[in-house]
Nucleic acid binder design. Structure first.
Lengths: 338, 338
DNA sequence: CTGAACTGAGCAAACGGTTGCACCGAAGGA
DNA sequence: TCCTTCGGTGCAACCGTTTGCTCAGTTCAG
């Protein structure tokens, strides 16, 4: 069968304990012994069994990523792999492995969280969520399991989290459109379940106020955040007789739908209507016209999220940390009115 | 500390072995005893420790997903999360967990594969790859570890794999363009490292031949498969003085770049040049014009891949299986010449 | 009435590491 | 020379389950 630490010990004429310590690079083992052991490990093609190690150490060096999609669309959004890549990048450097788990519907959440936490398979988990009143967050706090939320939760002072400053993001974008001469700016895709959209909306309102533009509630359109219903949302708006001079969609995917509808109606973007999105998906720059957006730096969200998690796993839950990842307004043709 | 099987045993006045067997629903334990044990487990809030279980069982119910990106772009492509979702979907039903691992550069491959296989953490692995002569495939065969490749490998008879019939995919698309009246059809984005692009090219050639159209090598342009360099590729082609009546790009993302360039040059799509892509990324339908593509059914690729892997893990490596996932030509405006 | 066949459950040895503590020999100080 | 100190290593318990055997008690056929 496979070669174990005992085989190495026998071959090296030492005890298994010594081999174990050599592998852990314990200072209690002499250079000479280590060298001998490593040589034999190499020769015998030995790999430590991480399961056995995990059992003994009571820690697995595995973290779980929980995608709190109320819908499977969450998985499909381009920023998901980017976050994942960010996490993977720093996790790999720190010898951590990543277990992903799909959450399909809300009923399964509790079960999946239990599966990840109580079974002892993960040392900590990263929650991809920006949902309002997320029950998993409450539960994780309750069982005192190390976790970090990617996306600011509503009880922001009681958990570790990392996010963009979405209020500022909304503000910046609105400010930009105002500077481009837009006065009637529609805000599309507010989903009251997602804090991120609410925050961006808040920023939007603040910018209007700072520019002495009256808020018109009719211009604020609710919709599913990550579903691609921009086309319908815009259609509904215009069929009410409202033709804004600028549109901010809560996500680029929504914005694409908006532009599609405007095109069909013969309205020019940006000259008739300026359109902007958020999240800067890879295709925004290839769209016609290239879409103004905000880069949220999803890679960093993931990377920083993992760093916080590591800290959290070590520090036995003393204080709560947060991190704000800077964003970048990417101005492209879709808002550049002549 | 956490409650273990021994605590349950004591509370139920039975041996740990009996509890273990009750959990496994062994016929050797009486209904009455089982009932008593389950009740106590519930009361004491017991969760089995999967690490200890894995050690004893020598199997973890975890599979690894290896993303063989020569570049990190692989992670970013929209079909990646779709495949992942497919895998997760059926894995979840079968009580399997998923470990993902990032492969950044080729040098790390071996190390990461060892990490996943030799450490005992996974029971099998899914390789996301369509690379030519993938060294990891050779290695996995060598160590006799259960694995399935998503994407037909070159030694197709010696491994388990699942893929689309990319030759047919290329054929169908070419045939479509020919029927739309295109005679000079460019084929963009052939990457000799990727079997998938080579297969699609093969289909392209077959279709030309079947329609008695002479092959013009100048129309075949190599490029990076998943990089968004369609713009440059098209530019290079046209700057050689070649203006095809149709363009097939090996991926939608390339096609977007192609269209962008054509727009800039004042050429109308599809009337001047018909353009098609592959993989049917979510945005293709929102593009202007909506892009003709082929849906590769990435979800099924993942789901079926996992099913094959399960079979492979059980069947001690007897025979090799494969599965072909059907594709669907999605005709949209970008190729509908008037 | 006795031995065989069953049922239901327990003992104890794995599984492959880690780690607190004991131990031993050599060096150093008194 | 004797006692301490200390570097280097081994012993054995432990991590929480699983599982091959054994075994006690019943049932039942001969």
């Amino acid at each position: 069968m496979r070669v174990t630490i005992n085989d190495i010990a026998k071959a090296a004429n030492v005890s298994p304990a010594t081999v174990s310590r050599a592998i852990a690079d314990s200072p209690r083992i002499s250079k000479a012994t280590k060298k001998k052991i490593f040589k034999i490990m190499e020769e015998m093609n030995y790999y430590p069994n991480v399961i056995a190690r995990s059992l003994a150490r009571k820690s697995t060096n595995i973290i779980g990523i929980l995608v709190m999609g109320t819908t499977e669309k969450a998985f499909q959004h381009p920023f998901f792999p980017e976050i994942l890549r960010g996490v993977a990048s720093v996790a790999y450097k720190n010898k951590y492995k990543i277990l992903i788990s799909s959450v399909t519907n809300m009923d399964e959440q509790r079960e999946i969280v239990d599966d990840l936490t109580q079974s002892g398979i993960t040392d900590g988990i990263l929650l991809l969520s920006s949902g309002v009143k997320d029950p998993s967050i409450t539960y994780l706090k309750e069982i005192q399991f190390p976790f970090v939320v990617v996306g600011r939760p509503d009880n922001e002072n009681e958990v570790n989290w990392v996010d963009n400053d979405n209020i500022s993001v909304g503000y910046k974008m609105t400010q930009h459109l105002i500077e481009m001469g837009c006065t009637e700016i529609a805000f599309l895709g507010v989903d009251r379940k997602f804090i991120v959209t609410l925050d961006r909306l808040k920023g939007y309102k603040m910018a209007l106020q700072d520019n002495n533009i009256a808020l018109n509630e009719d211009l604020i359109v609710e919709g599913k955040f990550v579903d691609d219903t921009g086309y319908e949302l815009m259609k509904n708006l215009m069929e009410k007789g409202i033709v804004p001079s600028g549109v901010i969609a809560c996500d680029d995917l929504l914005a694409f739908g908006v532009i599609k509808y405007l095109n069909e109606k013969g309205l020019k973007v940006p000259d008739d209507v300026a359109v902007a999105g958020f999240n800067n998906v890879p295709l925004s720059s290839y769209f016609t016209p290239p879409l103004t957006s905000v880069d949220i730096n999803a890679f960093s969200l993931g990377a920083k999220g993992f760093e916080l998690l590591m800290a959290c796993m070590k520090s036995e839950y003393k204080s709560f940390n947060r991190a704000i990842i800077p964003t970048q307004l990417i101005i492209r043709e879709s808002t550049l009115k002549k």
